[in-house]
Design a protein around this nucleic acid. Structure first.
Lengths: 225, 225
DNA sequence: CCTACCGATCGGTAGG
DNA sequence: CCTACCGATCGGTAGG
């Protein structure tokens, strides 16, 4: 039985390849773009599709158009590549969320936008859904990362809900910590449903809408009534 | 780098090994118990710990005390073993839930008990959390299984919530389908948090309590107020 | 960045 | 249920 990912030709980025590109330019097709970036992007995709452990450096390298020792020239080991992928995601996501927060958006909206951005990039959702389950194993190279990530996110969210609670806007009977856990859980769980429905676009969950509706049951929008 | 599971001696079942067992009986230690059962149990554990793709037949076989071709005598392929594991779980879980329903327990309690049973068997939780994320890939051998599973569970739960809704007991603004999706999502998401907290028992999520509290925000218990 | 190679491990089969 | 083996694939290294 074959379980691996289907082989695909090296991926190119939109705008980097045009029909007028002469065949002789094929080898230079990545010119002007860092190989490191290409590797990171391909790694996000494959880690997301098959998980970290099943993904092979050879497959990632081939999608970028280099050999696998070539890849190891940029990242000294498979675990180092994973770490770089995770660090990159954190940078990008954190920056976007902080911008939203700085713009004065309510916490509920900041979260809904995170989900909205995710829904536009299935590869990222696959990556985190697959990895967070895989990294549940204590000897997984991303185990510490995900533990810290969840601890941090839960603490931040708990603080946000505690603020709402102090303002009397948290539903009675719901503790800030419980609200935080549930919010993270709903986000994670909806992603699995969403991924499983990838091939029936019509009936797919609208993750952002669900999150907004869910949030409203925890801390009703004061302007809504 | 080594990513695989730590090697462990063949597992024995409580009650099957006593300190008075003579060393010469070691090879016959499985007598009286079906090898098939032992294989299934070991497979649940390893699939849960490292995922289906990373788990090896050799490791499972060695935990049972047989060779890997010996394992293939009982299950003709790795995918067949996975199918058997999933079928077994469905049998057991379905029977327990139907008994609870037949006993007249409200839907909320039936679900809380599913979670309670899960919390007592970390291996099963690991199995489903890991597999459901892994099986998100369309070419995974359990992809169809999990698609059907989610479709079925969501449909059943939606029907349950529609009944509550008809009785006027569903929170306003929440559709039965949305309530179902959220319930499943919270269960799945809490499991990931719970698994990541495996080594700090004190602060671990109480999954069943969270589910009960969550459910109460969707369809408040009429006797509670 | 390459070719060439290493030891290890994989699922499955042959043949008993 | 076993030993012995298969072709394929893995992460990483040597050496350039």
């Amino acid at each position: 039985m074959r379980d691996g990912p289907p082989r695909s030709p090296p991926r190119c980025h939109p705008g980097h390849v045009s029909t007028s590109t002469p065949p002789s330019a094929a080898l230079a097709v990545r010119r002007g773009r860092s190989t490191r970036e290409d590797i990171l992007e391909a790694a996000v995709q494959l880690f997301g599709q098959v998980g970290y452990r099943t993904a092979s450096l050879r497959e990632i390298a081939s999608r970028v158009g280099i050999s696998h020792p070539g890849l190891l020239h940029h990242f000294p080991s498979k675990a180092a590549l994973l770490a770089a992928v995770l660090a990159r995601r954190d940078e990008v996501d954190l920056a976007a969320s902080q911008a939203d927060r700085a713009a004065g958006l309510p916490v509920a909206e900041v979260f809904a936008r995170v989900v909205e951005r995710n829904a536009a990039r299935p590869g990222i959702v696959e990556l985190f859904a697959t990895l967070s389950a895989e990294a549940t194993a204590p000897d997984h190279p991303a185990h510490a990362y995900f533990r810290e990530r969840y601890t941090t996110v839960l603490a931040e969210l708990t603080a946000d809900f505690a603020e709402l609670d102090a303002a009397g806007r948290l539903c009675p009977g719901v503790t800030p910590e419980s609200a935080a856990r549930r919010t993270v859980a709903v986000m994670d769980g909806l992603q699995v449903q969403w991924l499983l429905e990838a091939d029936r676009p019509g009936t797919r969950v609208d993750m952002a809408a669900e999150i907004r509706a869910f949030y409203a049951t925890l801390a009703p929008d004061p302007e809504a009534s």
